[in-house]
């Protein structure tokens, strides 16, 4: 099978859906001529024209508001938010309007909108361009949140998101845009709320999101060399969450580490760990561990930045602790 980058996979998904559905359009900063700073959208304006690939001024609340209104009135906008960190600028349009309109209109209005944005540190982009803020929107009922972990996932999830009749936020990891993966030429969709078991194991479950799936897979390889059999699961979407899939693995292995690049406190790791504690308690042989980004602003210093996010070695070290029956946070 051919291998393409995550960037190319997203580009393909957008192009295919825009060809299929004339109500779709892209709106955002530097989306047309520049093709975004990450060149994800290269070539789209040439095919679809500036009426469907719309460059905006630097005014996130404005173009997000336009997109929400367009979605309510029959279009399928794909909003490009250049950095995930800018999500703070559009919180009202996203969380108060897009997320609640279907509910508050008694189902008479829908907001079939996709917000494409990104996440991820260790790109030397400093504290305002490196955050992973998906937990913020996952907290709001009415929003679906997808977190592709490879080029294959990115394409399949994007196409599903565009066909979804409710607002979806997709977080792509900035560091993965050039990562290649096998992606079939023929069309495919990835359903929301179905976790993907990337590696089967019996001793410990590593649940990872986005780029942390790769971290978990590398950790699983380290552990395999030590005769520890790790299962790696990617929830794919954190809303809706494939709770049963995660619980099934937790019950099987009885040990779980949840790895996500958002800040650890009050984050996605806490939510998933808590559900496992509540619903698989009697199958657990060790506390469910969370591994998120450190609760600090992402440092600009490369030496410091690199230690704020979970690493394969760190995940493997925690897995060894759980396997050895070491007391975690005793007292």
């Amino acid at each position: 099978m051919r291998e393409i980058t995550l960037s190319q996979a997203v580009n393909e998904a957008l192009a295919e859906e825009m060809r299929r559905d004339p109500t779709t359009f892209i709106i955002g900063e530097d989306v047309a001529e520049a093709g975004t700073p990450f060149k994800v959208l290269s070539g789209l304006v040439e095919e679809f024209g500036t009426a469907r690939v719309v460059d905006t001024p630097i005014a996130e609340p404005g173009f997000m508001g336009i997109a929400v209104g367009a979605a309510m009135t029959g279009a399928r906008p794909i909003v490009d938010l250049m950095f995930g960190d800018f999500i703070f600028l559009i919180m009202d349009q996203l969380c108060n309007q897009a997320a609640k309109t279907h509910y508050m209109s008694g189902g008479r209005l829908s907001v079939p909108l996709v917000l494409r944005t990104n996440m991820g540190a260790t790109r030397r982009s400093a504290a305002q361009h490196s955050q992973s803020l998906h937990a913020l929107v996952a907290h709001i009922p009415g929003l679906k949140v997808a977190m592709p972990s490879s080029a294959y996932e990115a394409k399949g999830l994007m196409k599903t998101a565009i066909r979804e009749n409710n607002p979806v936020v997709i977080f792509e990891d900035k560091l993965m845009y050039n990562d290649k993966a096998p992606v079939p030429e023929e069309e495919y969709l990835i359903p929301f709320g179905v976790a993907n078991v990337l590696r089967e194991g019996t001793d410990i479950t590593l649940i990872g999101t986005s780029s942390m799936v790769q971290v978990c897979q590398k950790a699983a390889e380290i552990l395999a060399a030590e005769n520890i059999s790790a299962e790696v699961i990617d929830p794919r979407t954190i809303v809706p969450l494939d709770e049963e899939g995660l619980l099934k693995s937790a019950r099987k292995t009885s040990r779980v580490i949840v790895v996500d690049e958002g800040h650890q406190s009050y984050g996605v790791t806490a939510e998933i760990a808590s559900r496992i504690n509540e619903k698989a308690f009697y199958y657990l042989d060790a506390p469910v561990l969370r591994m998120g980004a450190m609760d600090v602003p992402i440092p600009f210093s490369p030496a410091l930045e690199d230690i704020t996010v979970p690493t394969p070695e760190g995940v493997a070290a925690n897995a060894r602790k759980l396997m050895s029956g070491e007391m975690i946070h005793a007292a």
């Binding site: 308690f281 009697y282 199958y283 042989d285 007391m327």
Partner: peptide, 9 residues
């Protein structure tokens, strides 16, 4: 006695 939930079960 300190034991994991699974061990107790």
């Amino acid at each position: 006695i300190l034991a994991s939930p699974k061990a107790r079960r």
